[in-house]
Design a protein around this nucleic acid. Structure first.
Lengths: 203, 203
DNA sequence: GTCTATAACCGGATAGAC
DNA sequence: GTCTATCCGGTTATAGAC
C-alpha cells in the first residue's frame, strides 16, 4: 500500500535502494539518488549524515525483510514437506516482487562480508531450527543427505536465477520476455518437485 | 608457468585483477593497483589509456577463461551422466582455485548486464549443444524435467555457495575453517549425487 | 619506459538564506 | 525542511624530465 504523499524520507530510501542496486555502493552518486527522489542533493545529508549512513539505512531495512521472510517460513511449516514448499515459494515470491534484493545483499556481501554476518547474528535468526527441519525425519522416507548441503541447494536454486537474470533472459532466451516469464513462473514448482524427488524415497 | 622477469604489462594485468576483484570496479583505486604491481601510477596510463580500458582488459580475459571451462566440459562429455559430473567438477574446481571469479562476474553482471551478454554471444558459446546434453536421453531412464531448469539448477548449486561464502563460513559454521573446508570438499560430490538422484529413474 | 609533479575533475559534505 | 552556492579532499589523467 503506497501512500499518495510519500514523505521525503521514504522517497529517499526508495530512490537510494534503486540507485545503490543499479550502481553498487561505490558506483552510486548522491546526485543520482537525489534526482531519482526528485529532491535536492543536500537534503540527503540533512536526513542521513553521510552516504555511508544512507547505505546503512537502506541495507538494514532490506536485509531485515529477508530475515522476516525466513522466520515466517519457520512458523508456517510443521514438517519437511511443507518446509520445502514454504521456503521455495517464500524466497521466489519475494524475489519476483523485489528482484533487486538478491543483488543488493550479494554485492554488500562481497564488499563487506562481516557486516552481513553481523546482521544475521544479531537478527535472532534461529539457525538450529533451520537445520532441524531437514534433519529430524524418518530414515525410511528421507535419503541421508547432509542437511546443510540440502539447505544450501534449495537457497542456491531459488536465489541464483535472479542474480543471473540478464544471462538467462538475454542470452538463453534472447530477450524473449514471454519465454523468460514462463521460465520464472514455473521455477518454484520445478524446484519443489526437483528437491522432493531427490530427497524423498519413493515407495 | 610464471616467468621470472614478468614484463610490466603482465604485472599490471595481474595486479589489476587482484584489486578489481577485491574492491569492485568503482571501489578500486589506480594507486592501489600501481602499488600491487610495484610500479608508478602513471605507468598504468601509459599502458592502458584509462581505468575503464584497464578494467575492460581484465574482465575480458577473466570471462574468457570461464567460457573455456564450459567448452572443455562439452568436449570431454559424451552422455548426460558424464556431462553432469564434468560440469559440476569443472565449475567447482575453478571456483576453489579462483574464488573471487564468481563475484567478479556477478558484480559486472548487475552493473553492466549488456556487456556480459555480449561477451557470451561473441564467445562462440554453443547454447544449443548445452541444452541438447540434457534433452536427448532415453525417456525410460530420465525424468521429464525441463532441460533449461536443470541446467540452471546445476549452475546455481555450483556457483552460489562461493558467492555466499561469508554467510556459510561465518554464520553457518561460525568461522570453523575445518568444518567449512569439509563442506566445500564434499560439495561437488553432493551436487552430483543430488542431481542424479533427482533426474535418473531408479529401477 | 619509468619517474615526479601537477593539472583537471568529480563528488561528498557543509554554510547559510529562505 | 528545502534550496543555492561553495568548499575541500581525493582520484584520474597528463606534462615533462630523465
Amino acid at each position: 500500500m503506497v501512500k499518495k504523499t510519500e514523505n521525503t524520507e521514504e522517497k529517499i530510501i526508495t530512490a537510494a535502494r534503486e540507485v545503490f542496486l543499479r550502481k553498487g555502493k561505490d558506483g552510486a552518486r548522491m546526485q543520482e539518488i537525489a534526482d531519482e527522489a526528485g529532491i535536492n542533493k543536500s537534503l540527503l545529508h540533512y536526513y542521513f549524515r553521510s552516504k555511508e549512513k544512507l547505505f546503512d539505512g537502506v541495507f538494514t531495512e532490506t536485509f531485515r525483510s529477508l530475515i522476516n521472510l525466513i522466520n515466517n517460513v519457520f512458523s508456517t511449516s510443521n514438517n519437511l514437506d511443507s518446509f520445502i514448499e514454504n521456503l521455495v515459494i517464500g524466497y521466489t515470491s519475494v524475489l519476483v516482487e523485489k528482484p533487486y534484493t538478491a543483488n543488493f545483499v550479494l554485492h554488500e556481501l562481497s564488499r563487506n562480508p562481516q557486516r552481513v554476518v553481523d546482521h544475521m547474528s544479531s537478527s535472532g535468526f534461529d539457525k538450529q531450527r533451520l537445520i532441524s527441519f531437514v534433519t529430524a525425519e524418518d530414515e525410511t522416507t528421507v535419503r541421508p543427505f547432509n542437511p546443510i548441503q540440502i539447505i544450501v541447494d534449495i537457497i542456491s536454486m531459488c536465489v541464483f536465477p535472479f542474480v543471473a537474470k540478464p544471462i538467462i533472459k538475454g542470452f538463453v532466451f534472447e530477450d524473449d520476455v514471454k519465454e523468460y516469464n514462463t521460465f520464472i513462473d514455473q521455477r518454484s514448482q520445478h524446484i519443489i518437485e526437483f528437491v522432493k524427488t531427490a530427497i524423498f524415497i519413493q515407495k
